[in-house]
């Protein structure tokens, strides 16, 4: 069985970064910042929630970063965690600095297919970044969906990204929001425990529920198992995957997971597609 490739051919050279300027920089946590980027000249194609860009730090290199904000106009936001040379350089970029952007690449969350039903958004750590545009879309078209639940996990309250915004979602009462951390001091008003524990406490109507999960791979596995245990079909459970993506266009071979290329056939997959692959060690 051959995997279907996306139908839209991009004639321009997808390997050349498009110049963007940092117009805003917000610190999320000790090692994570959100950069707002605007094109210097022609912009990239408007991304869909779930897609990623390759961000290029001049003279240092390029890394895949999910898109954490798709603003009206041509502004895109990227939430970057400093874990390597390139991401450290990107995190250090001040307003006015130039970065290169290639993309958008990969599959999106398919929000439209969830319309009319319930949506559960589950994020672990910086996994909230590619789900943030989903929440924006759900809030923007709130009446297209029934129950909307957002579950967010992090190691500690200090390591929760988009803290203020998550609090405002919670305060709006238009959607159900729960946050949980691995441990906290008494000042923390959210939950303590792991994300799967939160799922036990959420009402799930499996026939009409779409679940979107992003976080560390271990968390994806535990969380998907919990949701499947509640009767949601594997096709309706979507996860965003991470691998070593270098080209973003299916040509470098680094991001393979068995038959799939994460950059091209993902990063968003139905669990029915990647669950069995993730069960295999070192695939």
């Amino acid at each position: 069985m051959a995997l279907a490739l996306p139908a839209d051919v991009r004639p321009a050279d997808a390997m050349v970064p498009v110049p963007y300027r940092v117009v805003g920089r917000a610190r999320e946590t000790a090692d994570t910042v959100t950069l707002s980027l605007e094109p210097v000249g022609s912009p990239i194609v408007t991304p869909a929630p779930g897609q990623f860009n390759m961000l290029y730090a001049f003279g240092v290199g390029e890394v895949p970063i999910s898109i954490s904000g798709i603003d009206a106009g041509q502004r895109v936001r990227h939430t970057v965690r400093a874990v390597g040379a390139v991401s450290q350089e990107l995190c250090a970029a001040e307003a006015g600095a130039m970065v290169g952007v290639r993309g958008p690449f990969g599959t999106d969350w398919g929000i439209d297919s969830a319309a009319g039903g319930d949506v559960i958004v589950i994020a672990g750590g910086i996994g909230l970044a590619p789900l943030r545009p989903v929440v924006h879309e759900l809030l923007r078209n709130r009446r297209r969906f029934r129950r909307v639940t957002v579950l967010v996990g992090a190691r500690s309250p200090e390591e929760l990204v988009f803290r203020g915004e998550v609090a405002s979602w919670q305060a709006s009462a238009r959607i159900t929001v729960r946050t949980t951390v691995d441990y906290a001091t008494a000042a923390w008003k959210g939950d303590v425990g792991v994300v799967p524990t939160l799922i036990e406490r959420v009402t799930i109507d499996p026939e009409v529920t779409t679940v979107m999960i992003c976080g560390p791979e271990v968390m994806l596995r535990f969380t998907a198992a919990e949701v499947l245990g509640r009767g949601v079909a594997a096709e309706r459970v979507r996860v965003s995957m991470e691998r070593n993506v270098q080209c973003g266009v299916g040509r470098c071979g680094h991001c393979q997971l068995g038959p799939v290329l994460i950059c091209l056939h993902g990063p968003v997959f139905p669990w029915s597609r990647v669950g069995p692959l993730l069960a295999r060690r070192e695939l």
Binding site: D31, R155, E159, V194, V218
Partner: peptide, 20 residues
Amino acid sequence: ARLQSVRMRMLDIYGPGTPS
């Protein structure tokens, strides 16, 4: 269930708190 929750947290899946 509580033990599982603790074990999962022991894995410290959210990765290094500071750049390595």
